[in-house]
Amino acid sequence: MFEVALKALFLLLYATFVGFIFMGIIRKVSARIHRRVGPPLYQPILDTIKLLSKKSNITHGLIYDFGIIYALGATILALFFIPIGSVSILRAYGDLILITFLLEIPMLGIMFAAMSSGNPWAGLGAQRALLTLLAIQVPLGFAIVALAEFYGTFSTYQIVMAQQVSGWSITHVSLLLAAIAYDIVLQAMFGKEPFDIMIAPGEISLGPMVEFGGKHMGILQIQHAIALFAETLFFSNIFLGGAVVTIFASPVLNTIASLGILLIKQIAVLMVAIFIGNIFPRFTIDQAAKFYWKWPTIIAALGAVLASL
């Protein structure tokens, strides 16, 4: 029991740190695309420390505080269900639907907090975020169905193991289609253009985030870091073959090797998101909903049909 708790703590620290570095990578790579130098990789960590050390802290009631903790908790729980090589704590229960669901819960938590602040901009942002959440469900659902049909299981760990035998998911046509649809959905989950509609700095001045400051924002930064880590990890696990390394005799070396392989895959997923995010303008919310219910849905549905044949 103690060992599991220790493992969980290690995993959490690792995910937070890597998540912050991912945020740094996003800023650095975006800066290079803009032909700027950009901040150092550890800049988001400094930002978060600064936010957490603010003296005045405005709160708008119980739900305002609770929503943020709720978002953080859900993200951490999602992280524990996703297999990380062979380290994961709850991987035996790592159900595809459960993880997908848990990765969306944080958005709801942020919405709770934003709505309780009573700010009309936050309300607009919440409205947009909920519509985005609604729009991405359809292609996401089809992508999950395609995976489940192909591998005949909902367990993420079994899917990873199956990929060790039959090659990465994206080498099969049906699952490649599902991966493309999922990658478009991932753009909205990361909050990158063209689907960063819920944040939209130039339009609704950060939307839900408009009222958060100090420790609330600091916790949200940590949540965002862990969510980045969890989302890229989930994608690498189900589509890019995950990493189960057994070549070394020592389990420690195996763990480090699998973490390294996963890290490379996660950064690859992240890079695609950054490159797309930097060259496209933002959709409006109705256009985004229309888009999600059209192309990604068609692609994912095609994948699901091909997988079930």
């Binding site: 695309i33 803009h34 032909r35 253009e193 063209p194 939209a200 930097n278 060259i279 303008p281 933002r282």
Partner: peptide, 16 residues
């Protein structure tokens, strides 16, 4: 215009 549309790359280039 680029910043309002969310394509920050074009904005940064124009400023440069």
């Amino acid at each position: 215009m680029a910043f309002k549309l969310g394509v920050y790359t074009a904005g940064q280039w124009a400023a440069a």
